[in-house]
C-alpha cells in the first residue's frame, strides 16, 4: 500500500461522516445535536488517525526486537 491510498480513503471517509452526512439529517428538535456530534466525531477521529499516521511516516528509530521474535516475524509476516 502506498501512502496516498490510506490518506485518500481515510480522509474521504471522515469527510463524508463530518462534511456530507450532516447535511442530510432530517428536521427535528435534535437535528443540531446530531450534526454537532457527527462533525466533532469526524474531526477528533480524523485528527487521531492523521497524528498516528504521520508519526510513523518517517520513523527516526526502529523497533528493537529479540532474535526469536525476529525469526518468527520473518517466517510468518
Amino acid at each position: 500500500m502506498g501512502i496516498e491510498i490510506p490518506i485518500i480513503v481515510v480522509t474521504s471517509f471522515w469527510l463524508i461522516v463530518g462534511g456530507v452526512i450532516p447535511w442530510f439529517i432530517p428536521k427535528g428538535p435534535n437535528k443540531g445535536i446530531i450534526q454537532t456530534m457527527l462533525v466533532m466525531t469526524a474531526v477528533s477521529c480524523y485528527l487521531f488517525w492523521i497524528c498516528t499516521f504521520l508519526a510513523q511516516l518517517n520513523p527516526l528509530i526502529g523497533p528493537e526486537i529479540d532474535n526469536t521474535t525476529l525469526t518468527i516475524m520473518q517466517n510468518q509476516w
Binding site: 502506498g2 490510506p6 481515510v10 498516528t52 499516521f53 510513523q56 520513523p59 528493537e64 526486537i65 525476529l70
Partner: peptide, 28 residues
C-alpha cells in the same frame, strides 16, 4: 536482539495505514 534500522531498508516506506504498527507491540 536487533534494532531494525529504517535507514537501511528495514522499513518499507509505507507506514501501517491505520493505527500503530504491530511491530511496536513486540519491541523492547
Amino acid at each position: 536482539d536487533f534494532v531494525l534500522d529504517p535507514a537501511h531498508g528495514d522499513y518499507s516506506g509505507n507506514p501501517y495505514p491505520a493505527g500503530l504498527d504491530p511491530a511496536w507491540q513486540l519491541a523492547t
